[in-house]
Structure formats: C-alpha cells, structure tokens
Amino acid sequence: MTEASEKTPSTGSAARGGTTAATPAGGLSKAGIAGFLARQGILVAFVLFMIGFTLANERFISPDNVLGVIRSSAILGVMALGVTFVVISGNLDLSVGSMMSFSTIVVLDLHDQIGPGLAIPAMFALTLCLGAFNGFLVGYLKLNSLIVTLGMLSAIHGLTLTWSGGKNMDIADKAGTWFSVFGQERVLGIPMPILIFLLLASLLGIMLAKTPFGRKVYAVGGNGTAATFSGIRRARTVFTCYLISAFCVATAGLLQASRSLGSQNTVGQGMELEVLAAVILGGASLLGGSGTIFKTVIGVLILGFIQNGLLLVGLQFYVQYVVTWVIIILAVWLDIAAKRGRLLSPIA
C-alpha cells in the first residue's frame, strides 16, 4: 500500500473536481462509479432532468425552447461567471443583483445624454469602481465579505435610485439606436446574449483553469495563510476577483439594457441569490478553493431548464421559487454526502 491512504480514502472530490486522486484499478468497479458520480454528479443530474422533462412534454427539447431558455439564462449566467471567481477565492458577492440594476439604469440614462459609444465604456468604468470598492474592503481591509457585499447591495440600490430619481429609465428613440444589437440581434441564428455568455465563459474558464492568476485564486480560497506563506499577494488576488465580478455585472447590465431599452430600478433585485444558487449548484464550495467555470455554466443551465420545465408541465410560476430552493438544498446535500461517502453522517 502507499502512505497516501491514511486520511481520506474518499471518492476524492478534490479541488477542481477534474484533477482528482488516482483512480483505483478495475475500471467500472462500484467505487469507480461512486467516484464518477461524486465528480460529475451535477452533469448526471442535468441529463436526467432533461430526459424527464422531455418525456413529460416533448416541446421541452425543441430547438426554439432550448435556445429560449439559454437566452433567458444568459444574463444570470454572465453574472454567475464573475461570482464563481469570488466564491472560489473564499468570499461572497451579494451585491451583484443591485449592481446589475445600477449598470442597466446608468447605461440607459447615459445613452441619451452622451450616446451609446461613450455610455457603454462610462458605465463599465463606474461599475468597476463599485467592484473595486468591494475588493478594497474585503481584500485589503480584510472585512467579512458577507457583511461588506450585503451592505453594498443596499448602498448601490440607493445609488441607483438617486441617479434615476426613482423613475423608470427609457431610451427616447428606441427604433433609431444601434444599442439594441447586444440584446436583440442574432448571429448565424444564435441570439447575441448566448454568444456573449459563451464567449465570456470560455475566456474566463481558460483564465481560471490555465493562468497563474487562476491558480492563485484556488490557493487563496483553499488556504489563504498558506498562500501568503508562498508569496502570493492575497489581497491583490481577492481584489481582482471582485473586479472580474463587477466586469461580468456590467456586461449583464449591458445585455439587459440592450434587450429591453428601458428598465425599472429594481431589474436585478433578488438575482444575487439565484446567481449564488447556480454557482453552488455547479459544485463550488462556499468555503472556497473549489469549483470551475464549466460547472457554473451547467449550474446556470440546470436552474434555467428546471424553471422552464416546470412551466411547461403546467406548474404555477410562483411555485418555482420553492422548487428552486428545494433543488439547491438537494444539490448541496448530495455534494456533501458524496464527499463523506454516506447520506447521513454523525460527523461533518
């Protein structure tokens, strides 16, 4: 035997799911299947959901419906990409929903004042400032991220209302602006929001998995002290994660504004929890140090398809809130159960 076995004999859900412990010999042994489920359980669940809903209503799998679901998930998805960085670094970002409202309102307002060409970069800059503020408080001042971003949720909401004077924001000349291109155009038959979501997911996915920065995010979230002892500048890493989160929020705000060309002050309200749900559903640990962009995308899609599927089988819209919560609890429970090897355990 090797010395490696003594502590955790488990199914090996290591950091980043994919890079796990040595697979035991013997191909698809019982342990092998359990190990596969532990690593890819979320993917399996996704496929099962898809099959189930398709059997219940075959319209579910039609190209129109599938594209529709992905498209309506794209804004949430873009935000979840950024939050994935923050969560892996061991922190939370609950301000993304209200920050998205801010971005949307600001870009719509500036559109009519300075034109779309300037409004977009100005909105990105302002949103990044908010992210930098989060990052400064959590990274450099080492304040608790839950408190900081929960407070920012409220503060940014106030900022948005102040900016808009509490009124809805609409573009005056809706027919005559190219600004609608991000939310409404299609390229090769695929809606732009989907393309932007997938493009951003690929870029950020590669960044997280392949670059030194990505590696540092995992290290800081996995063990911040050890990361510091290895010469990693922890504050700077956390700060950058919040910047990435804000960048994603700004992109989401752009998509939202471009799609509707008008907005309420509360358009992003409540999305922070849905975003967090998608990230956790994808399998990122709230303690930090694990998760991937790919898994977050799957989490986003699962959430979107389940909500859509429930509508198609005739459940009332409001029931979705409850069902979504149940699914998240199930996902978290199964994740923990897979790690400790049984469903109920006397020790955590």
Binding site: A14, A15, T211, R215, K216, Y218, A219, N223, G231
Partner: peptide
C-alpha cells in the same frame, strides 16, 4: 500547504508567476 490542491500545484505555488508559456501556466 493548500490541502485541497494537488501535489504539483502545491509544490510550484511560489513560482507559478514565473512558469509561464505565453499567458498560461
């Protein structure tokens, strides 16, 4: 150590910025 990370990533952590091929590790 970052206990949840693999052996290789732990070992190269202090020099991850220097071990680059283009923008990637």
């Amino acid at each position: 150590l970052v206990l949840g990370m693999n052996c290789r990533d732990n070992m190269t952590l202090p020099q991850v910025d220097d071990l680059k091929a283009g923008p990637f590790v």
